[in-house]
Simulated assay, not measured.
Amino acid sequence: MTRVVVRRLLEMALVMAIVVTIVFVIVRIAPGDPAAMMLGPDATAKDVADLRARLGLDQSLPAQYGRYVWGLLHGDLGQSIFLARPVTQALWERAEPTFFLTLFSILIACGIALPVGILSAYRHGSVFDQITSTVAMFAASIPSFWLGLVLMQLFAVKLGWFQPSGYGGPGASLGERLNHLVLPACALGIVSSALIARFTRASMLDVLGDDYVRTARAKGMSEIRVVLLHAFKNALIPILTVIGLTAALLISGAIVTETVFGLPGVGSLVVSAVLRRDYPVIQGTLLVVAGLYVLINFIIDMLYLVVDPRVRY
């Protein structure tokens, strides 16, 4: 098991090294001067030269790369041009809405998808199975921002049950802030549940006809124990994989939904950074998201060892 963990950690380090290199190269190979693009057409030559010196763009490429990597190793993602603060601080200030939005979205998605997928596989070929499969295909094709607008119009504007946008004032309580996340979390969770439900159904169908399931039934076990204890446990690896990928996609894919609902999260920070051409913020966010992707995949790999001991060997 130790060998597996060490190998995964080395793979994580290699992937992040590649991502860091790609992020570094993208800015350097972009047409035009990055400093001039950040400052806009009204900037003077002195302003551009000063910014190039601040960003280290006046140095050789090997020196720039070494300085960039050295800063990352010390937790320095750069300095935001327009926010006049470190990128790490800017991301941390916006992390709470994005974190809770992603967490609630994946909980809603799993809460819908897992029971539906299990029951659909258990009743394979029934009317319930056909209806849920059709609904899942339809839900997978719905843009989350469009569903968010529909939910906002129905539950916020007409019924007034939830807040239509924002994240509460500076002194808002946690409950009030979470109330603002209900609709965007439902929008993302419902759309994401379609893929998880289909994978759950397919994975359960693969194991429900296996010999050990028939043996468990022959021993007189209840259907609930057979389905949940024997079949579902052995079907978990592909389900965990798609849940992990969904969680990673929600982190990076919440940008549009956050913009629609006016949430001051990482998504809105990225949108404003792109409009302002604040490259340090864009680079830092890209690295953080890539790091979260790698971390989630590592956690899923470790869960494999818990779910199926055969993976250790």
Rank of each mutant, 00 (worst) to 15 (best):
R52D: 08
R52M: 10
R52P: 13
A53K: 08
A53N: 06
R54W: 02
R54K: 15
R54E: 09
L55V: 04
L55P: 10
G56V: 02
G56F: 01
G56R: 01
G56Y: 01
L57H: 05
D58W: 07
D58C: 11
D58Q: 08
Q59Y: 01
S60P: 06
L61T: 06
L61M: 05
L61E: 02
L61F: 04
A63L: 01
A63R: 04
Y65W: 07
Y65Q: 10
Y65R: 12
Y65P: 11
G66W: 00
G66T: 02
R67L: 09
R67K: 13
R67Q: 14
Y68T: 09
Y68K: 08
V69N: 03
V69P: 03
W70I: 00
W70N: 00
G71N: 14
G71K: 14
L72M: 12
L73S: 12
L73V: 15
H74V: 06
G75Y: 04
G75E: 03
G75K: 06
G75M: 04
G75H: 06
D76F: 05
D76E: 06
D76S: 07
D76P: 04
D76R: 05
L77E: 05
L77I: 07
L77A: 10
G78R: 10
Q79F: 02
Q79H: 07
Q79I: 07
Q79V: 08
S80K: 08
S80L: 05
S80N: 09
I81P: 03
I81M: 01
F82M: 09
F82N: 14
F82Q: 12
L83Y: 07
L83H: 10
L83P: 09
A84M: 13
A84H: 15
R85P: 06
R85T: 13
P86T: 12
P86R: 06
P86S: 13
V87G: 02
V87K: 00
V87L: 00
V87S: 01
V87Y: 00
T88D: 09
T88H: 11
T88Y: 10
Q89N: 11
Q89K: 15
Q89S: 13
A90D: 06
A90Q: 08
A90F: 04
L91T: 03
L91F: 02
L91K: 02
L91E: 00
L91D: 01
L91S: 01
W92C: 10
W92T: 15
W92N: 14
W92K: 15
E93M: 11
R94Q: 13
R94S: 15
R94Y: 09
R94F: 12
R94M: 11
R94L: 09
